[in-house]
Design a protein around this nucleic acid. Structure first.
Lengths: 191, 191
DNA sequence: CTATACGGAATGAACGTTCATTCCTTCATG
DNA sequence: CATGAAGGAATGAACGTTCATTCCGTATAG
C-alpha cells in the first residue's frame, strides 16, 4: 500500500466510524483496525486526533464542492440557480449518507462551531457561491430583505432536516419529492 | 437541602454542563461537583448516566410545552396558529439557551435518534399539537401537499437553525426579526 | 430533658475499563 | 548494512460506577 493510499485508508475509516457511531464510537484503535494499519501508524500521518478530524472535514468539502457545482450556470435566473444548488446538495447527501452524517457530527461538536464561526465572522471573504447567490437575491429584491444568516437558515435548514430524515429512514425521498422540497424552501426565501 | 431540591440540583447541573460542553464535557464527577453533591449521590436518584440523560429530556419537555402553548387558541386560522407556535418556540429557545443547546446535543446523539424514531414511527399516536396543526393544514389545502415529515422540516428546520445562530452569536434576533423569520417559514409550507 | 440506638442518605476513595498517545522493536528497501 | 516506515504493546489519564464508611435526623429509654 502506497503512502497516499494509506493516508486515504485512514481518512476513510475514520469518516466511516464517526459517521456511523459518532465521535464516541471511533477510538483511534478502531480506526487503525478498520484501515488495516497499526495504531501508531496514524500518528505518522496526523499529529493527533484533532488534526485528523479537521483534516477529514477539509477533505470532504473539497470532494463535495465540484460535484455540487457541476452544471451550475452563474448567468441563469436566481431561482433556477437556487433550485440547482439545493437539489444538488440534497442529492449529494442522500447519495453519500456517510458524508452527511459525518458533517452533522462535526458541526454539532466544538470543532464544527469553531469552523463555522470562522466562515461567518471571519474576514476571509473567501469566494463562496452561496453567499454570492444570496447577496444578489437580496440586492435585486428577488429574495426577502433579511440578514444573510437568516436566509441561509431558511434555505438550508429544511434541506438538512429532510436529508437527515431520509438517511434515518423516517421518509424516502425520490426525485419528485426532492424537487418539491427545494421549491418549498425557495418559497421561504423569495419575496 | 431537601430530597426534591437535591434531585433538581443534579438535573440542573447536568443540563448546564451538557449544554455548555456536550456529553464529552460532562463527566459524572463534574456534574456532582457543580450540584454540590457527592459523586455517589447521583446514583441514589438515577440508576446510571443514561437514565439521568433521558430524564433530563423528559423534564425539559414538560417544562417547555406549557410555556409554548400558553395563549394558543385551537380555533383561530391555521396561519395564526402556526405563527403563534413558531414564535413561541423561537422565543423559548432564545430565552433558554441552555435548554436549546441541551436539546441539540441530545437529538444529535444515539439517545435522541431513538427518541425521535419512537415519536415519528411509534404507534403511540400521542396527542400532539404540532401534528394536529399540520394534518389540518394539509387536509384543508392551506398547506402544501407534502408528507408530514417534510412539512415539519420546512417549518422547524429554519427556526432551529436561526435559534442556533442567535445563541452562538452569529446574529442577534429581536421581536421584529423573530416575527419575520416565522412568517418566512410559513411561506415555505403554505400553498 | 438528656442520652443512646437506629437506619436511611450521603460520601468520595477505589476499581476496572477505555481512550489517546508514546515508544521501542521489527520489517522493508536502497 | 543503514535508514526510515510500520506495528502494536505499554502507558497514564480520565471515565462511569461501586461500596465500605460516615453523617444526621428521629425514635426510644431512662
Amino acid at each position: 500500500m502506497s503512502k497516499v493510499e494509506k493516508r486515504s485508508e485512514i481518512v476513510h475509516a475514520a469518516l466511516e466510524l464517526i459517521a456511523e457511531n459518532g465521535f464516541h464510537g471511533a477510538p483511534m484503535a478502531m480506526i487503525a483496525e478498520r484501515a488495516n494499519v497499526g495504531a501508531g501508524t496514524i500518528y505518522r500521518y496526523f499529529e493527533n486526533k484533532d488534526v485528523l478530524i479537521n483534516g477529514l472535514c477539509q477533505d470532504l468539502e473539497e470532494r463535495m464542492y465540484p460535484i455540487i457545482l457541476k452544471g451550475y450556470a452563474a448567468d441563469t435566473p436566481l431561482r433556477e440557480r437556487f433550485l440547482h444548488l439545493g437539489a444538488a446538495l440534497l442529492r449529494y447527501f442522500i447519495g453519500n449518507p456517510l458524508d452527511f452524517r459525518f458533517l452533522e457530527q462535526f458541526h454539532n461538536s466544538p470543532y464544527g462551531v469553531e469552523h463555522r464561526r470562522d466562515k461567518i465572522l471571519g474576514k476571509n471573504a473567501e469566494y463562496n457561491v452561496f453567499r454570492e447567490l444570496f447577496e444578489a437575491g437580496v440586492s435585486r429584491q428577488v429574495m426577502k430583505d433579511l440578514p444573510l444568516v437568516i436566509l441561509f437558515a431558511l434555505a438550508f435548514g429544511p434541506l438538512l432536516a429532510v436529508a437527515r430524515d431520509h438517511i434515518l429512514n423516517f421518509i424516502s425521498l425520490d426525485d419528485d419529492l426532492i424537487a418539491r422540497t427545494v421549491e418549498a424552501s425557495w418559497d421561504g426565501i423569495r419575496r
